[in-house]
């Protein structure tokens, strides 16, 4: 099935709540690790090859029909930060609500029942792609793109960065998105899935620091 459905799912305006999350960029800006477009690019590149790769492999595996409960447990093991586990489940629940309204499917209903507090977002993303008639590669593309577009959009707001510069950062990363998708699809569609576990210490630490702030612009 086609690109039409992929554009609907990948659209930043798809009502799944992602805009409220900065992907760790808010804490990195506050800590002085992101001060402009060059830092943003290095941040996004690091996130892409770690959290982005893992999310894309989970999404590809879910889209290929792997057991959602096993994938959700694998996501937990790859997410040591409880703040990030909570954020991933909240985002998963919001996406689930949008997905069931958009592409109703018994599979989505079953996972929604099994995970009342939400399954990890990349798992729900893969199931949503499946319900929309899309494949593992489409799901992986949505995941890797989200892994960099979230921080880029957030940094435009946090630093008043020129939106053209932020978009240029994303465009420069595009060839690497393709490479990460290839790796994620190969790993996620292996039987059983050979899920990567790439981690980013500062994203994990930053998420805990951010969660302890009394006031913040973004939820994570």
């Amino acid at each position: 099935m086609g690109r039409g459905a992929l554009l609907v799912l990948a659209d930043g305006r798809f009502p799944a709540g992602g805009h409220a999350h900065s992907g760790g960029a808010e804490e990195a800006v506050r800590a002085g690790r992101i001060t402009g477009a060059a830092d943003l690019e290095a941040f996004c590149r690091g996130r892409l090859h770690t959290a982005g790769l893992v999310a894309a492999a989970l999404a590809a595996a879910a889209a290929a029909g792997a057991d959602p409960a096993e994938l959700d447990a694998a996501a937990d093991a790859r997410t040591p930060s409880p703040a990030l586990r909570l954020a991933a489940r909240k985002l998963g629940r919001q996406l689930m609500r949008a997905a069931r309204a958009t592409w109703p499917s018994p599979e989505l209903d079953a996972v929604a029942r099994a995970f009342p507090k939400g399954a990890h977002q990349p798992v729900v993303l893969g199931l949503t792609a499946r319900a929309a008639g899309l494949g593992p590669s489409d799901a992986a593309y949505c995941a890797v793109y989200e892994s960099v577009s979230g921080p880029a959009t957030a940094v435009v707001r946090l630093l008043s960065l020129d939106p053209f510069e932020a978009t240029a950062v994303l465009a420069r990363l595009a060839p690497e998105l393709d490479l990460v998708v290839d790796r994620a699809v190969a790993a996620g569609t292996a039987v059983p899935p050979a899920l990567p576990a790439a981690s980013a210490p500062l994203l994990e630490l930053g998420a805990e620091i951010h969660a302890a702030w009394p006031v913040r612009l973004f939820a994570s």
Partner: peptide
Amino acid sequence: PGGWDGPAVLG
């Protein structure tokens, strides 16, 4: 992989 020494990973 890229970004390992950047602000998301080891900084």
